[in-house]
Design a binder for these strands. Structure first.
Length: 459
RNA sequence: GUGGUUGUAGCUCAGCUGGUUAGAGCGCUGGUUUGUGGUACCAGAAGUCGCCGGUUCGAACCCGGUCUUCCACCCCA
């Protein structure tokens, strides 16, 4: 080992306690996915490049990890292409596969490929890693997990309501209180653009609007001007910046503002339905808030747009997001299939739970009982006891060597083991075993033939 | 992809304008205590100063490159 080994930037190793905590989150997410009726699927880590490229915009294409072809791939590149030194052109020749960038596009591909086996509406969930050649920051990695739930083939707005409930159920179960589910509708954005006369500049308009909480009203207006939106249009959009009051009040204000726009009115109507339905079923711990500045990946959303913000005071980007896309599978040739879905950002939820100290206290308790090893004869009796404990479902272990007692006790202490069992010469003679409660420092003796008494005390 | 920032013992960090054998706390190992951890006291081990190159009599410190960390853009989970 001449050189210290390392891992690529933006990737991480997970230690035992980290894996346990990640699994804790995954288990909760998975449980609720299932109780809401979603069926799990998995797709390959890498796809054909043409499945992914062009689906996330120019910016997205740049962030897709491309996989080099096998063999003597440079042979396929002719001299003209080679000497032109255009990375994209050459990449297309030497790379035909790429790591998946999210779970939604592979899912769309899956639906199209399996359309004849699927019973629609199809509710699927998927928990797998994705990769992005992004520049890492806190909460931004190049390899991270997404937990997605989507429905295809159902136009009803009840789906949107259900996803809000799903978010609420998961975050409530995780004890993460005070998350805000922000809600918007693409139709409202389109309506606003129409009303102010910027419909040809919709994307620039919404991208700028999306930055409101970051750069403020003046910043947004400045960016809109730079992006070619007229001062007249910007002035007309002014009421948006002063939108306030309850969700219903904001909806009323929007309704007035968008009265002349058919699509905008439709968006307000949809949003109102969702709010009223959610109010009727109630939420346990999450807040639902209308946010007209919410734009997100405008590439394919056509209706509702969701984003989940961590509780106030936690500095973290969104911990979940999603929306409706009326024609996602269209890009793969299957028309008129509506889809709506959400995603949980596992890695960010982990960081938030860690910051707020919300993991269950005993979560990293990988061992309940450790038997001290006093030597070959005693260890055999201890192993028999350990075997019985394990059969009863107790996480038990025997220290493998007759090391110094101090060392064994210290090991138990460091591993957070609540009970240590001692079977030495004395105990063997009495056919007993001593249990030390590591937290309280007390000891109790049990009959070696009747470990049930001890096991019962653990429950 | 653009601009900036960081890297010293297992961990968290000191290290003055470049000057002999690079320090602390925690952790680790051993001992006080050969059947008792977490507290206390004593002792000890442990670092190619991220990596490569340059300037210099001399570099952890200055310069260049590179990797990594974090931050602001971009974008996003």
């Amino acid at each position: 080992m001449a050189q210290k080994p390392s891992i690529p930037k933006g990737t991480r190793d997970f230690s035992p306690s980290e894996v346990i905590k990640r699994n804790y989150i995954i288990d909760i997410v998975k449980t609720h996915f299932q109780t809401f009726g979603f069926q799990p699927i998995e797709t390959p880590s890498f796809e054909n490049s043409d499945t992914l490229l062009g689906k996330y915009g120019e910016e997205g294409d740049r962030l897709i990890f491309k996989i080099l072809n096998s063999g003597d791939f440079l042979r396929k590149v002719d001299d003209v292409t080679y000497s032109a030194k255009n990375a994209n052109t050459i990449a297309a020749k030497i790379s035909e596969k790429a790591l998946r960038y999210d779970l939604t596009v592979p899912f769309a591909r899956y639906v199209v490929m399996h359309q004849n086996e699927i019973d629609f509406p199809f509710k699927r969930c998927q928990i797998q890693p994705v990769w992005r050649a992004d520049r890492p920051q806190k909460g931004r990695f190049r390899e991270f997990y997404q937990c997605d739930a989507d429905v295809v083939g159902a136009n009803s707005l009840l789906q949107e309501v259900e996803f809000i409930q799903l978010y609420d159920a998961v975050f409530t179960n995780l004890k993460l209180e005070g998350v805000t589910i922000k809600l918007n509708n693409r139709k409202i954005l389109a309506g606003i653009a129409e009303v102010i006369g910027a419909e040809n500049n919709l994307i620039n308009f919404t991208v700028a609007l999306d930055k409101l909480d970051k750069i403020g009203e003046e910043g947004v207006k400045k960016e809109m001007l730079e992006k070619g939106i007229s001062q007249v249009s910007i002035d007309k959009a002014s009421p948006l910046f002063s939108l306030s009051g309850s969700n219903i009040e904001q909806l009323d204000a929007l309704q007035q503002l968008l009265a002349s726009s058919e699509i905008g009115s439709k968006g307000v109507e949809e949003l109102r339905f969702i709010f009223e339905a959610v109010a009727a079923v109630g939420l346990q711990s999450a807040q639902l808030a209308i946010d007209v500045t919410l734009a997100r990946g405008l590439n394919y959303y056509t209706g509702a747009i969701f984003e989940v913000a961590a509780p106030e005071g936690v500095k973290m980007g969104s911990i979940g997001g999603g929306g409706r896309y009326d024609d996602l599978t269209g890009i793969f040739g299957l028309k008129d299939v509506s889809g709506v879905g959400i995603s949980f950002g596992l890695d960010r939820i982990y960081l938030v739970l860690e910051e707020l100290n919300l993991f269950p206290p005993a979560i990293d308790q990988s061992l309940e009982v450790l038997c001290v090893n006093f030597g070959s004869k005693e260890a055999l009796a201890a192993l028999q006891l350990v075997t019985k404990l394990r059969k009863s479902g107790v996480k038990a272990d025997l220290y493998p060597s007759a090391a110094k007692m101090q060392k064994q006790m210290k090991y138990a202490n460091n591993r957070n083991v609540p009970y240590v069992i001692l079977i030495g010469e004395k105990e063997l003679e009495n056919a007993s075993f001593v249990v030390k409660n590591m937290k309280e420092g007390t000891q109790k003796e049990y009959n070696l033939q009747q470990p049930e008494d001890f096991i019962a005390s653990l429950k």
